[in-house]
């Protein structure tokens, strides 16, 4: 059974369509919810939590209806919001313990688990510090700790690496991976940084302007396709050479994306890809300024979508 399942989920705010007929099935493990700022990620997370009644369509989370069974569902879900504002005067241990209690744990159990969660998040020594004295990285860890302290079945993390430096970001991603792989808790991570989603997630749901761009296992979406990035030069006697190269490569069955004199070409076999590119460039009498290998990545999903929309 999917952890989260939506059917034609639509969320409107006046004239703005935040989610547009979204059909998504999120399996267990770590799922990345990716998209640009304003794509609808947070709106989807709030729909999953039952905090906003969908305009139309449906959501089911852990087999429950978030609107009708909101309280029951939210006792099984840990949530770390994007907003980094926390009660400054509260000690980290009190903050995590209190929210564990509110999520239904008995007082003694909440106290023990709050301490454990802070140790797991790397804040064991800092657990008695006031939140207002903590760095951004530490506050992000506290938010993660409060999300896992009540032993949820699902954890929703909204931009958990926001404001972190590269070292802190890697540590946070490792923690998220640990929550799923070692603790057996399913995690949905929203992020606009595609690299980190690729680094930590098993599955991906990509949305753009409220619409589904792609959804599935990361390996299926990224695949094993290799690619080349070219930057051409059009000699004076060969105007339109770049377009000719694009046409030749496309005609040979390769996936090509062109932006002026820059092309991205993808194919299954790297050697064959190189040969075809060499031939196409040569036949078009184009100059080659730059040639890089590149792997197909999540960014390509969005670029493909943009190209399709332009063509449409």
């Amino acid at each position: 059974m999917p952890v989260v399942e939506t059917a034609a989920l639509t969320q409107r705010f006046g004239a703005t369509v935040a989610l547009d007929r979204l059909d998504v099935a999120v399996p267990g493990g770590v799922t990345g919810l990716v998209g640009a700022n304003g794509a609808g990620k947070t709106t989807l997370l709030y729909a999953v939590l039952g905090l906003r009644r969908p305009t139309s369509g449906s959501v089911r989370v852990l087999g429950l209806d978030p609107v009708a069974d909101g309280s029951e569902l939210r006792s099984l879900v840990g949530f770390a919001p994007e907003r980094n504002v926390l009660p400054d005067e509260m000690r980290a241990i009190d903050f995590v313990r209190h929210l564990a209690e509110v999520r239904g744990l008995p007082r003694k159990e909440a106290r023990t688990r709050a301490s454990d969660a802070l140790w797991l998040a790397g804040l064991g020594e800092e657990r008695l510090r006031a939140l207002g004295t903590m760095s951004t990285g530490q506050r992000q860890r506290v938010k993660l700790a409060q999300a896992i302290a009540s032993d949820p079945r699902l954890v929703l993390l909204d931009e958990p690496t926001d404001g972190l430096d590269p070292v802190q970001r890697n540590e946070m991603l490792a923690l998220i991976r640990q929550v799923s792989s070692e603790f057996g808790v399913d995690v949905i991570v929203s992020s606009h940084v595609l690299d980190e989603v690729e680094q930590v997630c098993d599955h991906v749901v990509a949305i753009d302007a409220g619409r589904l761009v792609a959804s599935g296992a990361l390996s299926d979406l990224v695949g094993d396709r290799s690619g080349l990035a070219l930057e051409l030069v059009e000699p004076a006697d060969s105007p339109g050479a770049a377009a000719a190269v694009e046409a030749a490569l496309a005609a040979s069955g390769l996936k090509v994306r062109r932006d002026g004199l820059r092309l991205v070409v993808e194919g299954a076999d790297h050697g064959e890809l190189c040969d075809r590119v060499r031939d196409a460039v040569s036949e078009a009498s184009a100059g080659l300024r730059r040639l890089d290998s590149r792997r197909h990545n999540l960014e390509d999903l969005f670029e493909d979508r943009a190209v399709e929309e332009m063509r449409a």
């Binding site: 309280s71 209690e101 509110v102 999520r103 239904g104 744990l105 008995p106 159990e109 797991l120 032993d151």
Partner: peptide, 21 residues
């Protein structure tokens, strides 16, 4: 070791949450 433990006990529900807050 302070590993992660599952919690299998009862949860207090809304009444417990209200009292806690």
């Amino acid at each position: 070791g302070q590993g992660y433990r599952r919690y299998e006990g009862d949860r207090a529900g809304i009444a417990g949450a209200v009292w806690s807050v």
